[in-house]
Amino acid sequence: MTTPHASAAPCEFEPQGEGRVTEVIDARSFRLEDGREIRLAGIEPAFPGKSAAERGRVLAVLLAGRHVRLHSDDDTPDRYGRQTVFAWRLPDEVLIQQELLTQGEALVSPEVNDGECAAALLAAEATARETKRGIWADPTAIKNTESPGGILSGIGRYTLVEGKVLSVRQAGATTYLNFGRNWTRDFAVIIPRRALANLAAAGLVPKSLENKRIRIRGFVEARTGPRIEVLQAGQIELIGEK
């Protein structure tokens, strides 16, 4: 029997059933009594330096032994057989992703294509940032493009970086957002040609970002200097603009 709930809530896509959580695996995944392994959509763990057990502790407090209802815009399992979903705890109807973000225990992933859902998740992240909860208690949680060494310290990690775009250049099939004058040392954003249509659909033209202050989210790479590759519009946020 499906638990009654309000319809049309943010992130409430197609229903994927309900179940009881029997095991929390890590900061964003758990197992149900029927054997399904569930991965939380729309977020990335905020504390990559911790062990899986440490990172999963908050999720265990929220979900261990509790019943959940699941929703997703795609019911196809990932390559590991996991279902990627948005999860509501029952009976209090807490959206787990929103709760983790509000506690500063997660960061919003750019993979959310639904505007209303993305806005709700970003608002929860902003609340934690403003109240300095969880990861946001650290003043260096958002990296500054003027300190490329600090960005490089997070190679391979999902990171938020803020700064002013000094120039936008195209080289072959790649567009670069440059945040410094030294292109081999300073931070830059890489936008491959295949991503331009995604950005354009969201009203983002790379050249229009020149001299704008923006926030970038993504995985840090080292290609001479620190880099983040942008494939989706949700990775770019104009600071101080709606």
Score class of each variant (00 low, 15 high):
E33A: 15
R20Y: 00
W88L: 08
V21W: 00
I135Q: 11
A173L: 08
E229I: 15
T174S: 04
L231D: 09
R169Q: 06
G225I: 04
D92T: 05
G163F: 07
G203S: 03
P139R: 11
K143L: 12
R157K: 15
G234E: 08
P110G: 09
L196D: 04
V161S: 01
W88V: 10
E237G: 02
R217M: 08
F47E: 13
F13E: 14
I142D: 11
E146D: 12
A9G: 09
A197I: 11
A137L: 02
I190H: 01
A64M: 05
D73E: 15
S72E: 13
K132E: 13
A6N: 10
L70R: 03
T159A: 02
A6C: 11
G19I: 06
V220R: 10
V205C: 00
R79N: 11
S167R: 09
E111T: 07
W136H: 04
I216E: 06
A188H: 07
V168M: 08
L95T: 00
L107A: 14
L209R: 00
E44M: 13
R55F: 05
T175M: 07
E237Q: 11
N144H: 10
N144C: 03
T131I: 00
R213C: 00
R227G: 01
A120Q: 08
G134E: 09
A120L: 01
G156Q: 05
E23S: 07
P10N: 07
L209K: 01
R36T: 14
G19Q: 08
N144D: 15
I43D: 09
Q83Y: 07
R20I: 02
V189H: 00
T175F: 10
A6R: 13
V189L: 07
E18R: 05
L199A: 13
Q103D: 04
E241M: 10
L238A: 12
F86I: 14
A118G: 06
A41P: 03
R213A: 08
T3D: 03
K143R: 15
S109W: 03
V108R: 03
D186N: 12
L166F: 03
R194M: 14
A60D: 10
G149P: 02
A52K: 14
Y158K: 05
R69P: 02
A87E: 09
T224D: 10
G81D: 07
G65C: 06
I190Q: 01
T2L: 04
A173P: 08
I151D: 06
G154V: 02
Q103T: 01
A46F: 09
E14R: 13
E229Y: 12
V161C: 03
S51M: 11
A197R: 14
L62A: 09
T76S: 06
A106M: 12
Y176G: 01
N178Y: 00
W136Q: 02
E14W: 11
R69A: 14
Q98E: 13
L122P: 00
L101C: 01
G35M: 01
R129H: 08
A53E: 15
L166T: 03
